[in-house]
């Protein structure tokens, strides 16, 4: 009984802590329209995150207009031109939790910590990317236009 209460309390507190970690967001018409941080991200930092193998791990599955990157995956659509195909809100929803768009997607939920199984202890309770990083990546993806821009920051 006591242990039950302690467990229930620890669950409530764990939830409260998570709620503090993750900023609230609202899904409307297939998009999360408001920035998670209340401001636009930095495209140059976003580019770094996308290209970094351990951080974004995007290129494990996606390819994109990054000729200097030798090993790009082909499990997912190319990121080339994604900024012309989608607006910030649509990209944000797919980054935050792609299963909201396609329940069977293989794309990891980058801003979700609930409902995951057997997460390794060092990653438990942490989203793949934090709110600032999500906004940086979105800002960068918006620079990848159909007209051939590479998003290279000059």
């Amino acid at each position: 009984m006591l242990r039950g209460i302690a467990l229930a309390l620890s669950l409530i507190f764990a939830d409260a802590a998570h709620a503090q970690d993750l900023r609230p967001y609202k899904i409307e018409n297939g998009a999360i329209n408001l920035s998670l941080t209340g401001k636009p991200g930095d495209p140059a930092r976003g580019r770094q995150i996308v290209l970094e193998r351990q951080k974004g791990i995007c290129l494990l599955c996606h390819s994109g207009p990054f000729p200097e990157e030798r090993f790009q995956g082909d499990l997912a659509p190319s990121l080339a031109g994604v900024g012309s195909r989608m607006n910030a809100g649509e990209i944000r929803l797919r980054m935050v939790d792609g299963t909201k768009v396609n329940p069977d997607t293989i794309m990891p939920p980058y801003y979700r910590i609930e409902g995951l199984n057997r997460v390794a202890p060092n990653f438990r309770g942490k989203p793949l990317l934090n709110a600032d990083e999500i906004e940086d990546v979105i800002a960068f993806l918006l620079t990848l236009r159909e007209d051939g821009a590479t998003g290279q920051s000059k």
Binding site: R53, F71, Q72, D74, L75, I106, P108, P109, R118
Partner: peptide
């Protein structure tokens, strides 16, 4: 589904076998 990346074995080995995961 398992882990922070939320994959299943089948997603890689049935749905995407033969595809490239990075290199």
């Amino acid at each position: 589904r398992m882990g922070q990346l939320n994959f299943t074995c089948a997603q890689c080995h049935d749905a995407n076998a033969g595809q490239k995961l990075g290199a």
